[in-house]
Design a binder for these strands. Structure first.
Lengths: 196, 196
DNA sequence: ATAAAAACATACTAGTTAGTATGTTTTAAA
DNA sequence: TTTAAAACATACTAACTAGTATGTTTTTAT
């Protein structure tokens, strides 16, 4: 990695941290360059606007991280249904960069930006769709294996799994307590088992 | 209603509309007083700070609306399980002040404010807890009636129902399309039926 | 080694923000 | 009808915002 591309990546990483904690709109460029110890000139050399940086965060930070955390593991899983549960549990409890009080980065950005920023909506849609498709295919695989009932609709299950995950992360934020995570996981297990 | 309390209520209502669409942080007081045609003097006579207005919106606008929309109907329902489905469907498709592209007001505010504003967190917690308790009691009632399996855990179901609702509203925002609502509702019905 | 481009640095600007200071008008009780 | 408080109006401020203008330094190809 060259020095310049390292600067760029540092900005994206530190900006992501701030935005994950505080939201996109309320994280100022002055704040970003203060914590990265990069000057404004450097910042605007790498990014034409704040929004361009925001999109880059989605594509270059959030997307690869998400792919490593739950796209690839699920694609390679021998028991996809079990993997969905295991992965959810791991995301809620063991993923170090995800914090109870800050929720899910993709969900946060969707909520904040999507209604009025087309470019953010586009970038986030690609992200979400990839996740969704992976879950759908995982369920489809189970059906073909005969390990999930044939009357189950993979698309519906994908929406249900993802929605409930997004929702429970918002609950975690609200209560700032992992109790709801435990209750959610128990019910998720029930739900997934009943698909068999 | 006196003229003064009418002014106050107008501010809260119009401010809610703006905040629901654009978020709390990015809705400025100047914008609120412009759309309400109220002066800054009037605004700051009724509310000491912007945050005080925000809390008032939760308690005086969001809370009563939510109680009318899904607390009271569920408390009085003869078939609570069916009512949960019917209500969710109605919230997604028929409730006029809720818009696909803007998500769920309570969820939006939770996501935006909770991590760093204690007063918002407190007000929203009360709101959410009331919703949660109502669903729990509804399931409990079904169990006592023998219309829901006795091994079902009402608390877990409440979390699952609410989380999935919050999540799917975020999906609606992301895709700006009701297709995901339809898929979600079908799966919600499956899930609820299986509790019987 | 040199020149040109890439990468970064500093100082500034115009617009916006929540909130205040200091008024005037309206309401309602005596 | 007077008077005091409630309700509102106007003009301002200090801090912050994204972005720019105009530089200097570093890197890289020749």
């Amino acid at each position: 990695m060259t020095k310049a591309s390292n600067t760029r990546h540092t900005i994206l990483q530190k900006a992501f941290d701030l935005i994950y904690k505080k939201g996109y709109q309320t994280t100022s460029i002055d704040e970003i360059i203060a914590t990265t110890e990069v000057t404004k000139g450097a910042f605007y050399y790498h990014f034409k606007t704040k929004d361009e940086m925001g999109i880059a965060i989605i594509n270059e930070i959030v997307k690869p991280t998400m792919q490593d955390a739950f796209i690839f593991p699920l694609q390679n899983a021998s028991s996809p249904l079990e993997e969905i549960y295991r992965m959810t549990e791991s995301l809620l409890f063991d993923t170090p960069f995800l914090k109870l009080e800050y929720g899910c980065p993709a969900s946060n950005l969707t909520q904040e930006m999507t209604p009025w920023n087309e470019a953010f909506a586009q970038a986030l849609n690609e992200l979400i769709l990839e996740w969704q498709t992976t879950i759908e295919k995982a369920i489809q695989k189970e059906i073909e294996n005969g390990t999930v009932r044939s009357d189950i609709n993979p698309k519906q299950v994908a929406y249900f799994v993802m929605s409930s995950y997004w929702g429970i992360r918002n609950f975690g934020k609200a209560y700032n307590d992992t109790d709801c995570y435990h209750a959610y996981l128990k019910e998720l297990k029930q739900y997934l088992d009943q698909l068999k």
